[in-house]
Design a protein around this nucleic acid. Structure first.
Lengths: 112, 112
DNA sequence: ATTTGGTACTTGGCAACACATAGTACCAAA
DNA sequence: TTTGGTACTATGTGTTGCCAAGTACCAAAT
């Protein structure tokens, strides 16, 4: 029961939302995503990102196309499917409700 | 990959924070906690709450005392230990950072 | 031509936790 | 003494973040 562990627990399910959000703004390949997340102070590791993208693709939320790179191997560029877009909107709603709920329970005079 | 599942995934680690917050405002027994959570639109089930309280107690974050009830069996009233209070403050910081991060990544013009 | 280093992706396994389910125990009123 | 409600316990399952090891491709240096 340490903070590092709790931090990764808190990430569960939320990363999915963030990643869909990044891809939703335009085709992206894994390193793009890591970069955008880092800019928002949300680190995500490759060992987390790759399996997550695979899950989302298998669930028909994402598609990808191979794009040649001039500095290394080809890259998978991901984009949202219609289903993925619909799912994203549900996640958005879910996050808002959760976030409001947590703030309601914890942000009370006595706790500040 | 459905919404119900994602909702419970998103709860991971966050419930811990919420529950400590409720108890921090004053001794509470499980049903009190469920009630306060429900008021904030955060449902928590008994099968989740009890093991969580046990974990927190085993980690020295909580203590409890038995209190007689005039309508049923005695109740465990929980309160925070010093360690629990320190931990709560860390969780508070963690939640703020995570929450800000998620909003930064997802709340962009293109996504509204 | 072979080595080296970087980039991109894959795979298998582990630990933590929300949740479901079934069960135990206690109490009070019918 | 049965019934129904309340309080708590114990066990098992599925999902997921993360780690670690591995594969593969490319380009510049040796």
């Amino acid at each position: 029961m340490n903070i590092e562990n709790t931090q990764s627990q808190m990430r569960k399910g939320i990363l999915e939302f963030c990643i869909l959000s990044v891809i939703r703004r335009g085709e992206a390949y894994p390193s793009d995503i890591v970069e955008e997340m880092k800019m928002a102070n949300l680190q995500i590791l490759e060992g987390t990102l790759y399996p997550l993208l695979t899950r989302l693709k298998n669930a028909d939320m994402l598609t990808y196309r191979w794009v040649e790179s001039n500095s290394g191997p080809p890259r998978k560029y991901f984009s949202l499917t219609e289903k993925g877009d619909a799912f994203y909107k549900e996640l958005q709603q879910t996050w808002m409700e959760l976030s409001n709920g947590v703030n309601a329970v914890t942000k009370t005079k006595e706790n500040n």
